[in-house]
Design a protein around this nucleic acid. Structure first.
Lengths: 260, 260
DNA sequence: CCTTTTCTGCGAACGGCGTATGCAGTATCT
DNA sequence: AGATACTGCATACGCCGTTCGCAGAAAAGG
């Protein structure tokens, strides 16, 4: 006849109060996991590894965490705490959301494992709630339904993660060409040259851009367009769109391509 | 002194020719894995389980596949083959891309595990290449760089997966309320009511929409806005945006919210 | 104060997983 | 025909997430 023991870790108090003083707390455990993930990647974050990194027994983490997934939730929420909201609240809503997106991207770049960790789950830890609150505050004066606002924020985060993932891959490629990327380029060119894929072939003929410094503005430009497209009251339906921007030049300036 | 044995499964021929006739082929193995995933979810797809489902030895799949990841790649590419390109090629580029997005969504809905499987990896199997080719073909006459086209396609896919994930969650919630969702709602309302989160609190006061039938048009409406925002030559920069849609009504019609 | 209760860290153990390897047999090539 | 290079199969290794029972320590009850 044990009590239900809430399903979410955020609803469970960290200490029940009765027993002896625990050696660690959730923050220290999350920090240890983050350090391990930053160094050796996400798969290195095992219960045993984090435990011995803390100098504890192999299975002693289960006194603080019910499952490995909860450990990852703690880690994700802790790095979300790196976001600062100091510069917010006094600008256009678009500026505020872009500032949030920039900070989110910085967190992703500082902890590359976060891209994989948040790919499936979206834990609503305290820091994530704070983030959501500030994002909603930035959109407070906008005349759209709360539903649309939440959806726009979700899509914004998805786009940020997508763009950042591409950037991370590009950075990694700059140091050492990963095996899979080489194999993928091999395969793509081989398939494209084998025929039956004319557009892919023409898209693959080109060079990567020499100047990387424009990627910063590209990030903001895409986000701006997506956000204005989602949250602007002007209704640009598909019907009014038809026949506007039609064929003008057939693939004028092929610059560069790569597989994401 | 063995040959390098290409790193990608798509570069490796299915049969080397010399030995006896194999009992299965990649398609049959992928189909078995898909059947298992459709029934019991992605974690049920283990090397042993798929092997015994085929009536083979526990580790016999390694004659066809180098690793479990490659098995997942086979499965992903096979379900990508369910996409039909018959209705394409004779409309506006936006219509073509929306048709592709709709089919992509159908595949996600038919195989819910695909959302998790493609969350981290983006394998470029033959069917994925075909998809990319058709998407590029739809954008052939557009006057933007190939880089922008590829990025737009990537972002489109990300948005489709995000929207579909939300829809899958919503459908599952209709049947049986999952534990985590209940716990999450519990936590969110608790936090919002505890103060310090006024915007979240106001966003949480409301009801879910009674009419679900508008979700179809919502899907297309969001995609349309994102795509036109990304691919329209008209340059709507952040600077020209400032001060346009400013405060008019403070959160007029709160409809509904939920955590994604 | 002492007892009782409830927590703590710890180590061993279980079942399952991905994967490597050695074996005996069979289809193809020279 | 003989050599070669593959086939299916079973066993085994190491690691993982997780469970459980133990001895001890801090708080609650009298």
């Amino acid at each position: 006849m044990t009590e239900p023991t809430a399903h979410s870790i955020w609803l469970r108090p960290e200490r029940a109060g009765r027993g002896p003083t625990p050696t660690f707390d959730r923050d220290r455990i999350a920090a240890a996991g983050i350090a391990l993930a930053d160094t050796d990647g996400l798969p290195a974050v095992t219960m045993r590894a984090v435990a011995v990194a803390l100098g504890a027994g192999p299975a002693s983490l289960y006194r603080y965490v019910a499952t490995r997934d909860e450990l990852l939730e703690l880690m994700i929420d802790q790095v979300n705490g790196e976001i600062s909201y100091a510069a917010l609240g006094f600008g256009h809503w678009l500026e505020s959301l872009l500032t949030l997106a920039r900070q989110s991207r910085d967190v992703y770049l500082a902890h590359p494992w976060l891209l994989d960790a948040t790919a499936t789950r979206t834990p609503m830890g305290p820091h994530a709630v704070t983030y959501l609150e500030h994002a909603l505050a930035a959109l407070a004066d906008l005349d759209v339904s709360p539903r649309t606002k939440l959806e726009a924020i979700a899509i914004l985060n998805a786009v940020v993660s997508t763009l950042t993932r591409a950037e991370v891959i590009q950075r990694l490629a700059g140091q050492t060409i990963p095996q899979w990327q080489q194999a993928q380029a091999e395969y793509l060119t081989q398939v494209a040259m084998a025929g039956h894929h004319p557009h892919l072939a023409t898209a693959l003929t080109g060079q990567p851009p020499e100047t990387h410094d424009s990627s910063e503005s590209l990030f903001e430009r895409i986000l701006t367009r997506v956000l204005t497209g989602l949250l602007q009251p002007d209704d640009i339906g598909a019907t009014s769109m038809r026949g506007r921007a039609e064929a003008e030049l057939p693939a004028a300036s092929p610059e560069w391509t790569a597989a994401s």
